[in-house]
């Protein structure tokens, strides 16, 4: 298992190389010249050209990429073209916010959606099931920024219970986490219901009942564990989604996270930031996927990694 984990971590290297190369390729296709954007308004064509040469933009895309990778290998993620600040330092500052948001919302989503989904599977086609199904549809249809604004109006503006934006205290996390995990609770509750329902009709669950096991044991011990694999896969991808895709939430709540950093950089084609962010995000997604795969083998003895 250790060997497998090591192999998977080593496999991250070509993955990250591929992803960053792809980013360089895509960005080279995007029209517009970063040097022209960066140069002062009154700069002449020569000055812009000189700037382009100094940034290395006159070289072919592949050379630019190799030069970047060479620097990364030496531990240098470069500086932002615009602010001239170190990308690595900025990421170290921002990553904790995004990671906390991701970990907390995924944890809370699992704590709520797995029991709720199991309950609706056990009580399927009853009133409780219909109510939960309705709520799930409601929350997965509601855009998260809208939920965020509603939360701000109710819990900050009208009541003053929670800080409306910014970061710092644990209270700052409450509303962003709710806004992020509402839709993932909704979708994971539904998928848990489906998977548990699937397992609960299987022969071995009937065997468990035939042994005289009580309903709680039947569901918790026999059904849920077998349904858990696809459920944690869903939760894992929710986590990955938060890392790169919570830009709207970070903007609404003014959280200085990785997503806003990345999106702002894309707008001005700040390549060191874009590649730096994507590299870090893909490493984390890779690690989460690895953890989920390792969890598979813990849950299901049929899954063995050599």
């Amino acid at each position: 298992m250790l060997k497998y984990a090591l192999k998977r971590i080593l496999l991250l290297i070509p993955t990250v190389l591929g992803i960053t190369l792809f980013i360089y390729f895509i960005m080279s296709l995007v029209p517009g010249d970063p040097a022209a954007m960066l140069a002062p308004q009154e700069a002449t064509a020569e000055e812009i050209e000189a700037l382009r040469v100094s940034m290395g933009l006159d070289k072919p895309m592949l050379i630019q990429y190799l030069r970047y990778i060479w620097n990364v290998l030496q531990g240098d993620l470069g500086v932002s073209w615009f602010t001239k600040k170190s990308v690595a330092a900025e990421l170290v500052n921002r990553l904790p916010y995004t990671l906390t948001l991701g970990v907390m919302s995924t944890l809370i989503a699992s704590i709520i959606s797995i029991p709720l989904g199991t309950l609706t599977a056990v009580k399927h086609n009853t009133l409780a099931d219909y109510v939960v199904t309705f709520l799930c549809l409601f929350f997965s249809a509601m855009p998260n920024f809208w939920l965020a604004i509603l939360l701000q109006i109710n819990f900050s503006l009208n009541t003053g219970w929670l800080p409306a934006f910014g970061m710092g205290t644990p209270a700052h996390y409450v509303m962003p986490v709710i806004a992020v995990c509402a839709s993932s609770i909704a979708s994971n509750t539904r998928s848990t219901r489906t998977w548990v329902l699937d397992v609960i009709r299987s022969d071995y669950v009937r065997t468990a009942r035939a042994k005289g096991a009580n309903e709680v044991t039947v569901v918790m011990k026999h059904a849920l564990r077998n349904a858990l694999l696809p459920i944690i896969t869903g939760l894992g991808s929710s986590f990955a989604g938060v890392l790169g895709g919570s830009v709207v939430i970070e903007t609404v709540f003014a959280i200085p996270g990785v997503s806003t950093y990345l999106t702002t950089a894309v707008g001005v084609r700040d390549m060191p930031i874009i590649t730096g962010c994507i590299m870090v995000i893909s490493i984390f997604v890779g690690i989460v996927n690895l953890l989920i795969d390792l969890l598979y083998s813990v849950i299901d003895p049929r899954v063995k990694y050599e």
Binding site: D203, Y204, T207, A210, H222, N226, P301, R302
Partner: peptide, 16 residues
């Protein structure tokens, strides 16, 4: 107690 017909599916795959 009952001996079920299909032994392939009657045992829980994640328990010894």
């Amino acid at each position: 107690s009952m001996i079920f017909q299909d032994p392939m599916t009657s045992l829980n795959p994640v328990m010894t």
